[in-house]
Design a binder for these strands. Sequence first.
RNA 1: UGCCCAAUAGUAUAAUGGUAGUACAACUGAUUUUGGUUCAGUUAGUCUUGGUUCGAAUCCAGGUUGGGCAACCA
Length: 561
Amino acid sequence: MAEINTPEEKSLNFLEEIIEEDLKSGKYTSIATRFPPEPNGFLHIGHASSICLNFGLTKKYPGYTNLRFDDTNPETEKTDYVESIKADIQWLGFEWKNELYASDYFDQMYQFAVTLIQKGLAYVDDSTSEEIRAMKGTHTEPGKDSPYRTRSIEENLDLFTRMKNGEFPDGSRTLRAKIDMTHTNMLMRDPILYRIKREHHHRTGDKWCIYPMYDMAHGQSDSIEQITHSICTLEFVPHRELYDWLIDKLGIYPSHQYEFARRNINYTVTSKRKLLQLVEDKFVTGWDDPRMPTISGLRRAGYTPESIREFCDRIGIAKRENMIDVSLLEFCVREHLNKIALRRMVVFDPLKVVITNYPADGTVEMVRSEDNPEDPNTTYREIPFTRELYIEREDFMENPPKKFFRLAPGQMVRLKSAYIIQCDEVIKDSNGNITEIRCSYLPESKSGGDSSGIHVKGTLHWVSVAQAISVELRLYDRLFRVEDPTSEEGDFKDYINPNSLQVISTAFAEPALKNIRFSDRCQFLRKGYFCLDKDTSEDKMVFNRTVTLKDTWAKEQKKGR
RNA sequence: UGCCCAAUAGUAUAAUGGUAGUACAACUGAUUUUGGUUCAGUUAGUCUUGGUUCGAAUCCAGGUUGGGCAACCA
């Protein structure tokens, strides 16, 4: 990526400030961060923000970022998810230093637990989960000590070993930290460190029947990897006290946890649980459905890594609750696509136009049009122009309102890269439906050599009937009809946008579209940005709409109504 | 009636005791062979009450509002 070396005027976010201070004071000479996904779902746009943050920090400052799968709950975790997560991070354009797993450290974590027992800081509790909950107290009442809290170190050591050896049934015993049952921070009221769970682990198989809890695993993994800045979301703030307590009592490398606010985006949801529901209940076709806010969904929709990185960069990071306008994401992708997309003409809803003064002998005239007017070195493609064309049905009105710059009886428009035409006659069927428009063209108005002296306000996209190829279009819109489906009454699924997908099975495209590859991005003139979908087959090309073009005319019409 | 975190235009984010700025959105206008792009402009903000100070978005105190915390989830 060619970064322009302008003087750094952009202000630092609060983490960059902390890091610069740490570097300046000599606390660290380089930093280490990690991205710690749990492999139990697909990555979404919120994760992209965290990825850009963690990897971005070590791109900006000396250091590196590890990818560490937080796989301490074998019940929900799968290798499939590991693969999709890796692919998504790479697609976003980031490289991790080491690919690691919390499960790599199970032996060390077990030793840490033993150490705590030996120091009299952990004990085996025989209480049921109901009993533990009951003794935990509430926000306003202190908890009560478990009757097993005073067991001897020897007994705890023996019991914990036997827990590991599989001598006790699932859920019958836990290892708990011995802290303070009256602590104002509920997490410090003797948190559970280890539980018995006979579950096949995606990496360690059946080696273990006890697994560490998040608090016993995360900070310890950070410490083992000597992570300097462990960045997580705000809901982990109360965990920091326990994070620090464990590192302190264990006397291991002091990683530090910092928290930022997770990013929320309107008109969508970003909770793995809800996303999973949308997939399972078939509201979408899969995790990579282009309407999903997952990285794979955005990728399939045609978003570019550059545009997502730009978006994450623009929204920044902070510690306050937020709801980001999805229009910023759309702005970022339009901004990038405008620079790189190949211009093509596709008619979504055809209306036949016959140029009555054009030769009726089957003449095919090739006109030239730029692939991208934004590119000073643009290439060109040839488009066949003939007597019979299709234009967009919405581009013609028999009784147009004021400011309608398109085709209407007696009105003139330019056909992009071709000629100016004038509408002479409207042909209707017996039901009064318009079936054809008869026009005349101005031969001297050809693009590139226009000597007609006539200026028209409207330019239309078009395709030649005989040479048109038919393609399928999938027009995606936002998944929800309300900004925040989670805060509405009832189930969030009640607020799904019923028109989030419109399929046009036969649209008419200029022949050059045939040569489009999967890596290409297109702008269908006046319609939006599109990319080839994986459902494309030998007989039919399928295109997904990434985003529409800004449409001030549509806005104008809405105001009128 | 606990503990923790936060509060700046509609949205997001700067200003780190000294001119409240930027981007998106919205709205005007100019340019345009895409009603796109580009360009120019407009609207719009420090939660509240006190205090410290020559001076407060910033520091302090009280209040208000929003969020998190009582899974053998992460």
